[in-house]
Structure formats: C-alpha cells, structure tokens
Amino acid sequence: MEKRKSGRIYIGFFVLLLSAVFFFLLSLTVGTSRISVSETVQILIQHPADSAASKIIWDIRMPRVLSAMILGGALSVAGYLLQSFFRNPIAGPFVLGISSGSKLCVALVMILALQHGIMLHSAVMIAAAFAGALLCMLTILLFTGKVRHMAQLIISGVMIGYICNALTDFIVTFADDANIVNLHNWSRGSFSGANWTDVRDMTIIIIPAMAGAFLLSKPISAYLLGEGYARSMGVSIFRFRVLLIALSTLLAACVTAFAGPVSFVGIAVPHLVKALFRTAKPIIIIPAAFIGGSVFCMVSDLLARMLFAPQELSVSTVTAVFGAPVVIFVMLRRNQERSAT
C-alpha cells in the first residue's frame, strides 16, 4: 500500500513536469507569427540576437510564458492556502474578493501615477495590490469572525468583490481615455505585455513566498484536523494564522499586480491536483499545486491567444470556462458525501 502510494506520487510529479515542459515549448512555438518547432529549438539553443523570430521568442513569448507559469503557480498555491485556512473547499483569492481588492488599489495607483506622468515601478504595483488584498482579507476575517460557515464566507467574499469592482469602474469612468486602454486590458486579466523585468520582480517575491508556504506544510497538516487539535499538538495558532494569511495574500496580490485578476485557478487547480495524487498532504500538494497552476495557466494563456487569433481573449475568460465546472463538481461531490454518511 505504502509503495503503491509513493509510486502514484512519483508518477504524478513526472506527469506534471512533463506537461509543464511540453506546454512551455508549445507556447513558445505557437503564435500569430509562424515559427516552426525546429526553428524554435534552434533559437532557444543558439540565442541569435539579430533575427526577428529570435526577438519574438526571447523578448515577447518567453517572458509571457514564464509569467504565466510563475503567476499561475502562485495563484493556485494561494488558493490552496486559503482553502486550508478557512477549511472551505471553494475558498480562493478570486471568490473571496481578494483579487478584486488588489485590482481596486492597483487601478487607483495606476491612474494617479499616469495622471502625474510617473512611470510605475512594479514594486509599487505589488505594494498597492498587497495593501488592497490585505484590506479585503481583514474585512472578510472581521465579517466571518469565529463562525466559518461555508456559505457565509463565500457570500461575504463575493459581495466584497462586487463592491471593489464597482469602485474600480467608478474610478475608471473618471480616468483619461489613454489610461483606460491600458487599464482595461489589465483589469480583465492577462499575461500579455510581460517583460523580463516583470519576470525578475515576480520571481523575487514569489520564490521566497513559495518556500515559506512549503515550510508551513507541517503545521497546515495539523491544522487540517481543526484548530483545537493543532494547538494541542504544539502549533502556535496565532503565529501560524498570521503567516498563512500573509503568504496567501502576498501570492494572490503579486499575481494581480502583474496579470490582473485571474479567476478560478486558485480553486480548480488544488482540487485537480488532489484528485491526481489522491491525497491532500500539504507537503505534496503545495509543490504539485504550483506546477499544476503553471500548466493550467500556460494552457489557458495559449487558448486565450490562439482560439480567436488575432483577437485575444482575457485569460480569466478561459480559466473560468475550465475552472468553474470544477467548483460545481466539488460542491456536488461534497453534497453526495454528506448525504451518504
């Protein structure tokens, strides 16, 4: 039994990594300007500086795919952390309104900066997104207090999301036309326009945050049995909760700062990964959710680019189409289980 289980885990990681590599290469190859597979491979190996194809691959597609990977991974881990924290299977940065909170703050900062002709550093964007996300998170914690009823939590989250979106719309209405074009693209969720500096900046934030999340897997596993048991086993609950909130909010905020709000990745991917590995052990699920989120977002971005090319869809449109059914499925399965016992 033990052997069979660990076998499944090796196979699971192998499948995830393989599909990550596959979709990474595919994303580099596929696009509006046709570059053949062999040409792509050649460009990747030789890195010729002069050709237009090389520029497209190295300066446009590569940063875009990398940010889809990194942000997708961050988003699904943020979702997993929030689900563990609230012990609610459909919690996630988008559903809880955290992404919308980030969006509001980033939009505000963006417009103010553009009006004064200031170029925004990505650190400022991240800080704004983090502030917005944290504000929403604290509001939700305040609302739900000690009662963590599943429906109550989600309803508060969705409502906060609506309020933030309404405020964002309000701000956008009074912004300059030039700003709106910029903002509109971003506020729908997209990985387009990412450059190498963005990739560097998001890596600087997300890698340590991921390491932190991974190191929390032991207390998370205890917390899964409930707060009382976790405390009785020696988990310092207050510190643990602060860390968990800080990390999940930071990860979600970072995604919003660079790619806008991306829906359903945070809910769908952890569930798919748990189903693949047939376990919910955080020490496995945290890295697996990161790779899974990478793959999910690369595929979604690929579809967003290609389905109606040259017209580009927002990535949220695609993630919602694939992610929302997962949420429905999870809820139905939970209902079945409840009626079965």
Binding site: R87, L225, G226, G228, K274, R278, A280
Partner: peptide, 9 residues
C-alpha cells in the same frame, strides 16, 4: 474532542 472533524482525502 467531542466535535467531529472533517477531513479530505
């Protein structure tokens, strides 16, 4: 504890 716990997988 008295309260039942809910687990996942």
């Amino acid at each position: 504890f008295t309260e039942r716990i809910s687990t996942e997988r």
